[in-house]
Nucleic acid binder design. Structure first.
Lengths: 257, 257
DNA sequence: GATCGTTAAAATCTCGAGAAAGTATATTGA
DNA sequence: TCAATATACTTTCTCGAGATTTTAACGATC
């Protein structure tokens, strides 16, 4: 006799969505949890991405179950779900750990993102209809407003900007015919978000990001795939340079065992 | 309580292995299970890939726990791990289900595989050293032997061929600098393997697969990235044609509820 | 002082049983 | 006959407690 667990995941939808569900993450952030496992999963994910739990840190179930207010089994299942996002690593008989970070990893994430996201954008531009266009316009508008607010130094809006930036990038590729590419892109974006937030280089508008978004938006709407993917590539790669200029020992300092 | 970030990873193992662990599946097939969950996970995965559990089929924990001889909680965790491989879908308060299949999905898988695998091969050819070459030579040799045996109509060797074919494809890209691409490739390959085995079109050597492998091998060893990726693309896409010629209702038939 | 083995503590992994939600069946009324 | 509701059954989800393994502490020996 040992222990138990629970778990849970997505919501009720049609058959077609089912195969989509095979690819989508356990819970898309905006949906509300239908189960305790989902709730713990969402909160844990947010905490990891925001750096509350440091990279490489040991995640002790006995300890965390209090804080997230669920049973041990439930928490284990939530942790298992996070393995899908590659935010948590599970090792044989030795529990769970926050996935570590490194410059090399971020470089890999970024380049792979370029590969997938440009391909997806190409597909979207090729086959996207009016609904897609409308979604892109809307997402861009919302993002622009948030960026305006950031420029005005309104505080407390970076959270909003993060969310809308993600929505914009996802809208751009939402008409891609490949669910798998979108699935992988989703995972990679989440990873890169983690780097962006953990690193202190909180100058979201140090470079003129809005201008980049504007250009990306216009090229996309003009259905100029070559130009759009080119801009997107530069756009993504630029964040790589920022991280590379971080102090060299930034990623190597030790966490607690 | 939120603690702020001390970052970095720790070093039970070398940096590289750790971050690699973040991407690798819970258990790489050849390793032996250190835990009951892993054991159930491996057996379940094999059964799903081999079609013992049909696509779309409901996976009732109460029922399966006997067959796999573990507790309900343990089986749930194994199921959760399979979500990472996108072989199982979990739905909110409604249990688990084998991920469904469709022609469109297989087409997506195939094309995405081409995108990732050719890029990975390019990287391998660009930066692979002698160790990589040796690994490729060895894998190709083993595969060739298996294909020879298949041609001689030795029975019971298709299992062996499957395994060696996979090993060959993974060896080709093993020198890729991108762990993420290799990670995604691994998932996609598993998926395609499922299609190949579920579909009855068991003519593994209907077309001269060995010749294709031979050409791919030679181009790779000659470090001719253009030719190698071209052959690889054709090689992967050819299986797509085979599936497309399947009876149209093949994928829509079974699901049971 | 350092390596090794023994012992104690902590954490993981596992199971069975109970509460909540979903699914199927039966009954009722038009 | 059909639809709608109520009831019974099945399955999922959740928790607390026990067995194993890992990790830490402590000495002993060289």
């Amino acid at each position: 006799m040992r222990k138990s667990y629970p778990f849970g995941s997505r919501a009720t939808m049609s058959e077609t969505v089912l195969s989509q569900a095979a690819l989508s993450q356990a819970t898309d952030s905006h949906e509300e949890p239908k189960t305790l496992v989902e709730g713990a999963y969402q909160r844990l994910r947010r905490d990891i991405i925001e750096g509350v739990h440091a990279p490489g840190e040991k995640l002790r179930v006995e300890h965390l179950k209090e804080h997230y207010d669920v049973g041990a089994g439930t928490l284990r299942e939530a942790l298992l779900l996070l393995v899908t996002d590659a935010l948590v690593v599970a090792q044989g008989q030795r529990g769970f750990r926050v996935a570590p970070i490194s410059i090399a990893d971020f470089e890999d994430i970024t380049r792979t993102r370029v590969l997938l996201e440009t391909e997806a954008l190409r597909q979207s531009i090729a086959s996207g209809g009016e609904d897609w266009e409308a979604a892109v316009v809307a997402a861009f508008h919302r993002l622009s407003r948030a960026e305006q607010r950031l420029a005005d130094h309104d505080v407390g809006t970076t959270e909003e900007w993060e969310s809308r930036n993600r929505a914009f990038h996802e809208a751009l590729i939402s008409a891609s015919s490949s669910r798998w590419i979108r699935h992988f892109q989703h995972i990679l974006y989440q990873q890169s978000e983690r780097y962006r937030r953990i690193s202190l280089f909180r100058q979201p508008i140090a470079r003129d990001i809005h201008a980049e978004h504007q250009a990306l938006f216009e090229a996309t709407m003009a259905r100029d795939a070559t130009r759009a993917t080119s801009i997107l590539t530069e756009h993504i790669l630029r964040t790589l340079d920022a991280v590379k200029r971080m102090p060299a020992d930034f990623f190597t300092s030790k966490s607690k065992r």
